[in-house]
Amino acid sequence: MIGRISAVASNTFREAIRDKVLLTLLVFGVLVMGSAKVIQPLALGEESKVVKDLGLASITLFCVLIAVLVGGRLVYKEVEKRTIYIVLAKPVRRWEFVLGKYAGLMAVLLASLVIMTVGFYLILFATGIDAPAYMLWSLLMTYFELVVVTAVAVLFSTFVTPIASAVFTFATYVVGHLTRDLRLLAAMSPSPIVKGGSQFLYYVLPNLSNFNIRGEVVHNALLNPQALALSAMYAVVYAATLLLISVFIFSRKDF
């Protein structure tokens, strides 16, 4: 079982790192972090905070883009190119395939996150800004956010085209950061339809703002370890649920 999942996962990893999309996003991500230096004069004495905040934000954004763009094509591409016939003709169970694809993409994201983090710290050293290891907490939370976003991408990838999957996943990511507003909307709206709709979305969509602790780490504020652990657990449970639904859909698929 583990052997077969890791065969699918390592193939997914290899496919992604030989794909130009990933390389383009990585290069672009590092460039954006470097460009923070350009806007420094606008920051009026808060340079180091702006550069750090922008750097951490671009790492998150580009990793999410990788999850969305690479993840959206994950399952669909295998069906479209009919490589799926070869994989599923082997003694690979369908759930092992879905899990392998997910694990492979999570490995790609870990590698991307590490590469961009190294780039980020190098930029900070080069510009003489202090670079505390403390900021890594924020990047760890980003990885847990990716645990959720990738599961969303895999879910969509099992039943819609790559473009639709990318759009839906990115929309989920954006709205996932606004879920508190959704609850507010539910509380304030007089219309029962809007109330019900936003309440439904609030409960169904992932609450991604929990994973954003950039403000705290940039301002050297104290972190709440319990809240962080809770967020991490939330990510794992949420992703596991989505993967279960993905497996359910994928197992019923007729090729």
């Binding site: 496919e15 030989r18 794909d19 190119k81 009919r82 490589t83 016939y85 003709a89 003694p91 690979v92």
Partner: peptide
């Protein structure tokens, strides 16, 4: 999966992972 471990399959005009 048990059956598949005893079977080999070549699909029609197969596509592979070209990378």
């Amino acid at each position: 999966a048990r059956v598949k471990s005893r079977v080999g399959f070549l699909p029609e005009s197969p596509y592979f992972y070209d990378y």
